[in-house]
Each structure stands twice: as C-alpha cells, then as structure tokens.
Amino acid sequence: MTNEKNHIIPYRTFLFVLAGLILLTLTSVALTQIYLGTMTIIIALLIAAVKSSFVLRIFMHLKFENKMFSLMIIAVILLIGSVIFITLLDYLYR
C-alpha cells in the first residue's frame, strides 16, 4: 500500500510557516490599529487570504496532494466569492 502520499514534510517547514503566520497576524493587528477608512478592510482581508493560503497549502498538505483537491477548493472559493460579490452588487445598486 505504498502510493505517492508517503511524502514526509519536515518539522522545520511547519515551524517556519507558524512563525510566518504569527508575524502576519501581528502585522495585521498593528496595521489595522493605524490605518482608517476602507483600506483597513482591504489590508485585513488580504492578510487573512495570505494566511489561509499558507494553512491550506502547507498545514493541509495541498501543495503535495493530488491536484484534484486544489481544483475543488478553488471552485468552492470562487462560488462563495461570487455569491458575496453578487449580493453586494445588489445592495449597492438597488
């Protein structure tokens, strides 16, 4: 039962990613305390998106997994994103 999924990710990788994630968290906290206006929302959500891509790709092994999983996740994200976009369009221009 040995297939290609026997890829072992070294402990180091996870520690580096963790350090990066904590750094990004502190950055977003610091930046949102300073900036005002709509930029705050954009910065906070952008950093959240970067953080979640790290979690998905490294912690959830997507980088080393069958491409099918990545494609399905992209589809789900596009679905949620487009529903949010269309709903907001409706409320903005009603």
Binding site: T25, S28, T40, I41, A44, I47, A48, K51, F59, M60
Partner: peptide, 26 residues
C-alpha cells in the same frame, strides 16, 4: 490522523477570517 488534522486546520482557517472581521475592522 490526517483527517482530524484537516478538520482542525479548517477550524483554524475559519478563525483566520472571523478574527479580522469582528476584532480588527472597526
């Protein structure tokens, strides 16, 4: 074990968005 990890990471992933939406964007 991998599946329990996936579930736990998803919970983490959701919090990554809940945190800025409720605490940071003021």
């Amino acid at each position: 074990l991998e599946n329990s990890g996936l579930y736990w990471h998803l919970v983490d992933l959701i919090w990554i968005f809940l945190f800025p939406l409720f605490y940071l964007i003021t």
